[in-house]
Design a protein around this nucleic acid. Structure first.
Lengths: 94, 94
DNA sequence: TCCGTATTTAGATAATTTCCTAAATGTCTA
DNA sequence: TAGACATTTAGGAAATTATCTAAATACGGA
């Protein structure tokens, strides 16, 4: 179920850029928003979708909320693609 | 450019199921459609999106059109995920 | 050429998604 | 507690997407 949410989350270029930004370490919502020509509520919405898909985690520190990658779901997705490239046998869909 | 199209194509569960079906070898449009509770034009539409994203190829043989996987784009996508899991250094976004 | 089968294209509708502005919430400091 | 800052929630408009039915195209065989 969360598999589908993750694929949908990654389908959006803004959200993929957010994920890429987070590869260098955690960032606050405001820092993330500063990289986009978009209002903060819109970025916040994208962050919510990434969080629901378990692709990122958040933690509050004072007024700031820090976002960071949760790589465990990436591993599941990685395997999905791997099964296509490695023309192996048994493949289970979601 | 096609990178974004591929992610969008894969975001849909019907299309992911089509891709999974094709892992066992090429199938005609009709054979693919028979696996879904959906009219054939709808499946045809999904196939078109997969083709535009270069995830599948098609070839006509008489009245039938055979679809098969094109794994080269899968390799690009695989690398994208790999770069997240392997907490490496330089990462280039699209 | 006419018919049947396979598939796609066209056009419409309903659902979903993205983005905006305005308002609310949470936290710190004075 | 009041004010400022960081962030999210709410509500709505515009764009995109998924699906349907009907019609068109492509091919093979009589």
């Amino acid at each position: 179920m969360s598999f589908n949410e993750a694929f949908k989350a990654i389908a959006d270029p803004t959200r993929r850029k957010i994920l890429s930004l987070l590869r260098n370490g955690e960032l606050t919502a405001g820092e993330i928003a500063s990289h986009f020509d978009m209002q903060k509520p819109s970025v916040s919405h994208h962050l919510k979708i990434l969080k629901q898909a378990d692709l990122v985690q958040d933690r509050r520190e004072g007024q700031h909320i820090y976002y960071s990658l949760n790589t465990t779901v990436f591993q599941d997705l990685l395997r999905w693609f791997y099964d296509f490239v490695e023309r192996g046998e048994k493949h289970v869909e979601e």
